[in-house]
């Protein structure tokens, strides 16, 4: 009797002592956006800074993109980066859940503010057909900078030297396609944006990977570029599919750089066009205040 009781005691003690030891832990959830969020602009939510403290743990991610805490707008995915159209006009929350192999979860909600400081007004220029301009204001530690961009594709009166669309609606939407030599000398104050100025604008619009989409977004604070195509050897090409916008930077005597966007793609890229090709024009000017 005593022997069996002692054995029971020892067995119990051994069972408890041999319980698997564990230090429960959960993944570290971190996410950020490489660029500032802007309403309706596409944006990368990047959770690649998340990690597990358990060696060999594979993480999965899912997102509450509208921040309502009611459901998850994405399924579990091993890709830490998700591209979304930013849904908030002013501010709102976005949530992330990170899951490790053992099922432990970490949840992180962060708020995001949009900050838009812009004005849209009539541009007073030398051109016969007026265009609107959008002024973006930026403040820096030692100065303020206002970048002014044409808010419409430049329109010119009919001429053999450039291409105008037939209907007034098309002209209003697509503007006039002009050769580089014309585009470069349209106005005394407003000028063709340089490559670096277009680059600044693409950076403002989420970087080269997303700017092609964001430059076309029908949001008031966006440039709302269109895709008129281009005219080469007298033929209108890629109409409705692609937009080519001249830069002020020449490649050589015969060609110059242009920004290319596509209606279906998110990317924006610089391409070389023959100066005799006809492409779209947005003009720019910049002011500095100290």
């Amino acid at each position: 009797m005593k022997t069996s009781a002692i054995l029971t005691l020892l067995l119990s003690a051994v069972l408890i002592a041999s319980c698997e030891r564990e230090d429960p832990t959960a993944p570290v959830a971190v996410f950020s956006t490489p660029t500032a969020p802007r309403y309706m602009f596409k944006l990368n939510l990047d959770a690649s800074g998340s990690f597990s403290t358990v060696e060999g743990d594979n993480l999965e991610y899912r997102w509450d993109l509208n921040g309502d805490h009611l459901g998850w707008e994405t399924d579990w995915n091993s890709n830490p980066v998700v591209t979304v159209q930013f849904p908030y006009e002013h501010n709102g929350y976005i949530g992330l859940q990170v899951r490790g192999n053992n099922g432990t979860l970490t949840e992180l909600y962060q708020g995001f503010y949009t900050y838009e400081d812009y004005r849209i007004q009539k541009a007073w220029s030398d051109l016969e057909i007026d265009f609107r301009r959008i002024d973006y204001d930026f403040s820096y530690p030692d100065h303020y900078r206002t970048r002014v961009w044409a808010y419409d594709n430049i329109q010119l009166k009919d001429s053999q030297l450039w291409y105008n669309f037939q209907s007034s609606e098309e002209r209003a939407e697509f503007g006039t396609l002009v050769p580089w030599s014309v585009a470069d000398t349209l106005d005394n104050d407003y000028r063709l944006p340089s490559r670096s100025e277009w680059q600044q604008m693409t950076d403002y619009c989420g970087g080269a990977g997303l700017a092609g989409f964001n430059l076309q977004v029908k949001a008031e604070h966006g440039l709302q570029l269109t895709c008129p195509g281009k005219v080469t050897d007298g033929q209108l090409l890629e109409h409705g599919e692609t937009g080519y916008y001249w830069t002020g930077d020449e490649v050589d005597e015969d060609s110059a750089w242009a920004l290319k966007i596509t209606a279906e793609g998110d990317e924006a890229e610089f391409v070389i066009l023959d100066k005799s090709s006809m492409a779209s024009v947005r003009l720019t000017i910049e002011f500095l205040y100290f």
Binding site: S32, T33, A36, P37, N91, Q110, G111, F112, Y113
Partner: peptide, 10 residues
């Protein structure tokens, strides 16, 4: 968490 840009709030 590490520091975040001004447009992110926690």
């Amino acid at each position: 968490l590490p520091d975040s840009p001004d447009y992110t709030v926690r």
